[in-house]
Design a protein around this nucleic acid. Structure first.
Lengths: 226, 226, 226, 226
DNA sequence: AATGAATGAGGATTCATTCAT
DNA sequence: AATGAATGAATCCTCATTCAT
């Protein structure tokens, strides 16, 4: 009747199967997985503890053993997702350095394409984050603020990246372009979610526009390594 | 927040303020107003009928006389907001034609600025719409679809507009730029909501980038009327 | 949104179609028809004015113009159904007299068969009546009493009939057999409703058993008119 | 009617009487008791969760911990009642074998009388069951089907019993007589509920009639063990 | 004769959370 | 480390009924 029957967990088979008693880490993991999926689909208010309980296979009261609050549960989801996100970004940047893609513009576009591909693979994080951002709950939940923090971090990363790519361009412009990239990324992500628009195509448009804007603003590709 | 919103209608004050019967239109209006405000702030699941009832001054059961569902109520909100939106756009376009703003780029930027200003004045519509778009409720609510319809309409408007502005540019490019404008608008709107970023500045960046991109793609401003 | 659009009423086409204004009789009829159908299916508590309104095509408030209460509406349903019932019975008895069916037993069985056939044609009346009978609402509704009255009337009819058929048998026995017939009829009706059992077969069993019982109790078929 | 039904469990009396936690079985029992009483009186739609909550002394939300649905609650009521019913029947049959009641007919009548007495003592089960049977809700509730199952079981029991009692009689006839007994029992039960008719007398009539019918159909009491 | 609009009470069910074990 | 049971407040929505027009 309740979620007390453990569902077949998708863990590697090599691990000891006896999670049922006294294995906090695995339980915490299962809860976060479930919460991430549901919250990514339905937002903060749409996420009910009972559903998380059912999907994770743990009773609702166990969720409260691991997290003090629904609020903190969602905040933890954001946090964990962001860590995964950053990891992925790091990998991406490393690859970036490795392969040489000819002209600066082409290299820039390639980077954007890779971002799009990554985004398409972990859509839950951004979807939840944007929902949290848009909501104006009177009791500002922790989760929202946590996401906004990750947002700010992403933006300054981007700014630094652009400063490197468009070396010589004045900072105001690179900042504005960074903001544009972030905004347009969000927008294309939403469009992709809504109408199934191709994310990669969208990101390519962004790259083209940003590059043109930088050029129009006086930048010229003297040195290519970005 | 209580029933005092409605006019007292010259009735003995001691009585329990029985709302002037048989005035469906006004009531419907009041309900939609309330629902628009709340849903604009908190999204679909965050909007409770009781709160709408309190803000509109009508009992919850009366709401169900006017709308069969919470779903249909929110859908009606979207619809009405869109109508207001379109009206505002029309006014905007008329002004557009009237005033001559020098070069094509300046004229384009001016148009974008006006859009931003308008958006800043009616944020509820877009905020609600975006929240609906991001949610993935299993029983796809009417409201969401309604918003997506308005979205599609806006996009084709924009495409036609760009076709006029960048006469001679090939359609694929104008389409991609239209999508970029819409996406970046959404994104800057979200950023403005989240961090208080200046919407007008964002839209100016869009205008600059789009114009540069069009120019880079081969377009040149021979004729100026946009 | 409401039931204000008149559905195609199933009245004979010869009648003037302009029922829409000021034709109380037809409206009353439509309401009773709808109420009979719904109440026959779902019982007293299961019958909602709104549903009756929708099925009849008249707004709920109009129902209250014709009937003071839900209670009285259902009572009126019972009453009207009973009238139809009695009419049908009368026809049945007349036919009974007309055709001569050989032996007393055969004639009796034929009568029972006809009863079964009639019952199978108007099941709503008995179903509703039995539901009302079984319910023990604290505020005994009018409808229930009304049905019990019709019940008593039916029983004494039956007693008189048996007295004629089993002339010479002592009254106690005929009374008990009358009660048996009524009880078994109800029971077979329920079985038929529940499991689709053949009503006619059941009634034939009743006839057989009653006839045997009467015979065993000392009656012998000297005179045949039943 | 309030939370006082449960034992005080030696707790400081000033406190809000927090029910002794973790005693699911007793609570489930209390809920079923309350539901059985109310549903037996008022049928499915007439049974409100709030009333069950009040009578059982548990908050409405607790009922939903034990039963997923109103539907499943009522179904559980049926199930439990049937078990009690069967138990009582078993006891009854054992007594049947023990005492020797002279002639086959007298023995048969005695059995019927005992059934009547038992029925008179647990009227809620049959009353609810019959109400469920008569209702035609569009979403066939579980409870109804559950009752129909018990019905079918009872019928085949009865058939086997009659086959033993009227050994030698052809099966078609014993089946028809079994159906008659069940039907007439239901009918007399209803009559007893409605008008206070004596159930035992009714059942005696059934016994007499069935016995006469069997005899008339060619059966003769050669061996007496029933 | 009829009806659009309104209304308070109550319907079933879910909510986030607690706590004894 | 975990959980069965409980709980009050809130959820959306339907109820029978009323009344001005």
């Amino acid at each position: 009747m309740t979620a007390s029957t453990r569902p077949p967990s998708s863990r590697p088979a090599g691990q000891p199967q006896r999670r049922s008693r006294a294995n906090g880490v695995a339980s915490r993991h299962a809860i976060l997985d479930a919460a991430a999926r549901i919250a990514g689909d339905r937002g903060y208010e749409g996420t009910s503890i009972k559903e998380v309980s059912e999907l994770s296979g743990l009773p609702a009261s166990s969720i409260y053993w691991h997290f003090t609050n629904k609020d903190e549960l969602i905040a933890a989801v954001i946090e964990r997702s962001y860590d995964g996100w950053i990891d992925a970004l790091r990998t991406l940047n490393v690859d970036d350095t490795a392969t040489d893609e000819g002209s600066a513009e082409e290299s820039f576009r390639a980077g954007m394409r890779r971002s799009a591909e990554q985004l398409a693979q972990f859509p839950d994080f951004l979807r939840l984050g944007l929902m949290l951002t848009l909501e104006r709950r009177p009791d500002e939940p922790t989760a929202r603020q946590r996401f906004l923090d990750t947002r700010a971090a992403t933006l300054s990363r981007l700014q630094r990246h652009l400063a490197r790519v468009f070396e010589g361009l004045d900072t105001t412009m690179t900042h504005r372009l960074a903001a544009l990239i972030l905004a347009a990324s969000d927008g294309f992500f939403i469009a992709a979610e809504a109408e199934g628009t191709d994310l990669v195509a969208g990101f390519d448009t962004i790259a083209h526009a940003v590059f043109s804007a930088a050029t129009a603003a006086g930048w010229s590709p003297t040195n290519d390594r970005c």
